[in-house]
Design a protein around this nucleic acid. Sequence first.
DNA 1: AATGTTAGTCTCAAAATGAGAGCAGGGCTA
DNA 2: TAGCCCTGCTCTCATTTTGAGACTAACATT
Lengths: 138, 138
Amino acid sequence: MDGRVSNFRTQLEVYRSKGGGEAGDLANCPVRNVVQNIFSKWASLLLMALAERPYRFGELRRLVPDISQRMLTQTLRDLQRDGYVHREVFPTKPPSVEYSLTDMGRSMFDSLQHLLGWADANFEKVRTARARFDAAEG
Amino acid sequence: MDGRVSNFRTQLEVYRSKGGGEAGDLANCPVRNVVQNIFSKWASLLLMALAERPYRFGELRRLVPDISQRMLTQTLRDLQRDGYVHREVFPTKPPSVEYSLTDMGRSMFDSLQHLLGWADANFEKVRTARARFDAAEG
DNA sequence: AATGTTAGTCTCAAAATGAGAGCAGGGCTA
DNA sequence: TAGCCCTGCTCTCATTTTGAGACTAACATT
């Protein structure tokens, strides 16, 4: 109630109205549909890497050590499908594949970056909150 | 390479250095640890709702029609644990429980909102990109 | 000839999620 | 007084998603 999230009543109404058609239905909201892919387990991490510079498949795998090849392939394909990532195959032997951000990917990442910045600035507070919660519930 | 994601080489280096200790290790990066919860399947949707005004459990369930009670409970508890959401029980009969954003939750949501705004403005482009990809791969 | 490299795919196990019943403790209606 | 509804959950079991690791093909290196 302190005004910091000012105009969000309106905002949520807008999202609602973009849903299936029934008033108040968030189930088929297109905003939700778009962010779902960006918020998937590995997407933001790969986007962070690709915002730095283009990477090859194997480089990404080494950079994000706990991703499986399966999910790396799948997440990259999803990001490519949504238009954030460009995939280019070089006909070397063995072939190499380079992934890079598109203009749209960079545009989206500019917005994502705000939240990453917040997390960077506030992860200690979150850690503290978690510790307090865990201590209180015992 | 057009400079729009300017200082992100540096940024990623910072995230890397905050990892386990080995250079270039993103596995235990605290930023990643924090955003993971915000990016979970239902969190952003509930945050959007709670940014509008406090809601009761049953209200949230009706507002987000395709969430299961199980995941609603669990996601709310995670958000509470991380310090974004306040849970208050009113001793009515039957008891009612109200969820609201904390100051930290509002602060975080201000950053998240940038991305939601981008998705709102660009979901048509994403839809187009998907259609093009799906048509090309057949 | 043996081994390593590339970017994947395939299979099977493990983890996360969904669907739906159950619960406690009252208030309503009949 | 019996029966049903309301609340905010938890529990169980089925389905979906993700992870771990083997396998591929064609070449380079040792």
